[in-house]
Write a protein that binds this DNA or RNA. Sequence first.
DNA 1: GCGTGCTGAGAAACCGCTTTCTCGACTGCA
DNA 2: TGCAGTCGAGAAAGCGGTTTCTCAGCACGC
Lengths: 345, 345
Amino acid sequence: MGERSRGVTIADVAAHAGVSQASVSRVLNGKQTVDPAIVRRVQASIAALGYAPSAAARSLVHGRNDTIAMVVPDLGNPLFQGILQGLSLAAAADGYRVLVADTAERVDEEEAIALEARHRCDALVLCAPRMPEAQLRRVVDRVAPVVVVNRQLPGADVPIVGVDYVRGIRDLVDHLHALGHRRLAYLGGPTASASNAERVRGVDEALAAHPDVQIEVLPGGSRLDDGYEAADTVLAARERGATAVIAYNDLAALGLMTRLRELGVHVPGDLSVAGFDDVPMARFALPRLTSLSVPRGELGAQVWARLRTLIAGGPIEHTVLYRPRLEARESTAPPAGPVVERTNP
Amino acid sequence: MGERSRGVTIADVAAHAGVSQASVSRVLNGKQTVDPAIVRRVQASIAALGYAPSAAARSLVHGRNDTIAMVVPDLGNPLFQGILQGLSLAAAADGYRVLVADTAERVDEEEAIALEARHRCDALVLCAPRMPEAQLRRVVDRVAPVVVVNRQLPGADVPIVGVDYVRGIRDLVDHLHALGHRRLAYLGGPTASASNAERVRGVDEALAAHPDVQIEVLPGGSRLDDGYEAADTVLAARERGATAVIAYNDLAALGLMTRLRELGVHVPGDLSVAGFDDVPMARFALPRLTSLSVPRGELGAQVWARLRTLIAGGPIEHTVLYRPRLEARESTAPPAGPVVERTNP
DNA sequence: GCGTGCTGAGAAACCGCTTTCTCGACTGCA
DNA sequence: TGCAGTCGAGAAAGCGGTTTCTCAGCACGC
């Protein structure tokens, strides 16, 4: 690996300074008292020789390499990008670096990639929204210490950090309900995705909480194009009475809004639209997109906090779910036409 | 580090199989002929014991760890995200993993971070748009093998992969000129950024190529907010006669367009706007944003190709600059008012 | 029948560092 | 002055593999 002056070893330094390797090591790690004169000589030799200790040798003897791996299905996803950034910054503060392992959505290789990545690192962060639960449980057992992102694994011995999608959707439905909407559409994400399933659960719970509300679930997707192309589907739902749409995420919502505008459908006049994630662009869309804000960087930092505890031999900390914060903006408004209810008639 | 069954070593396998460590190693690496019976016994023992060789020990003896590091100023930047993804996928195909080191724009720590990252890995990818050239040259010397992204270092012994910003800007100016624009504004990016400097050079060259064109350089930025907040500045330039704006990147352009629409300034009717990078959102903005497409993933793959050659002891390959592809969309159109020139009157 | 040349497996050295072990020297107290 | 107790530095034993070196065993040839 990487010493710029490959070949300069601790033995060279020891020889140059006229002391033993052990003393050089002691000076380097400063965990034992060493004669100040020796310290000076060693430091001088280190500087003179341009010595830098081998990370590999250190890893071997310590049994760790101060590196963790993050397994993601798609680095192009803003959520994972944000988590990675937060994780990377938080871990760096403790001297840890992050290795990325992009599985490129190949669910069948996810396990092997996770195992391999874990094998190079001290711990793992697993983002595997599509992996079957049974498999995930098995993998989690084998790669500990590990933190799982955005999955539910009741009873499993693993810390989980995630977003409370259920709650987010419920809050959003509450918001739309308060605005007067009674017929909604949920434009779903990838069907195999656990976080989409959570959102659907949110839809179900919202339905239970609002007997006067109907929510139609539509096939959608997670990218801009998916939203764009789902416009027809959405408009069909509108024909059936829907006055507001909740998209799987902001990307889909933004794509949808673009197409709607092209088609002359006014948002929120003709249809309210809301997203999820609160990507930076949401604030800059026209109309500004109502969304659920997710603290991506904070999520990453929280993942690191959990992992650090685990690495240090600490307990498996409790699952933490971030409740998305509703950012009500211009893309959602009371439905046009006769308002169903009014507090003060 | 990470064997799931920590403690199982090659010695255990050897003992279990009743052979020497050397034989186990041979079976593992398959680079020498071994008695088939021994091979079977060893493989059985490996399976039985759940043995996995220690990556650290391998690293120590081989002097490499099949990991490269990518140093970036800000993981939030779409360009670096794209490069990272492309790099990560390409490197993975050769069994290499990528470590990320986000310097969080702290230019003064960039060097130390690069050195430290290099020290853990076999090679480095350096994205340091703000680092002073002299320092960059020094760093590059010390961390080889390394590939530099988006910088010019004439005479330096280092492969460079980047975007031809000069050419991109020239092409864009050509496009605007052909549309009839004669007074333009360039809404700049971070002043210390090398890629901004390149764009400015593009502006200069374009001026030289089009004596009838004037381009005003405005202070801007690289994020959505920067563009949004620069609207007044841009409109002032418009008062002075500018009919088109080139933003540092798409984010700034999108932010600007949002604000312009709020202010009732029509794009491209009142003002043409163009960006750089062709982020996915560009196609979904209204109007669709004219931009210069940069193959981010391809850039990452190309970086890996260069690095792989270097790691294998190959030559320092030539600098490769990707010429951005002009994606002329709706946000740029002929200027309103009397057209200055016309081919056929 | 015995020397020569291979083949293949085990013994041991080595990668570069940390850490224990050992021992000499020095301090303090009787 | 002598002996137990400390302290600090060097020697050496790992950490877990790979690779060289060595040598036993065997086929072949004269």
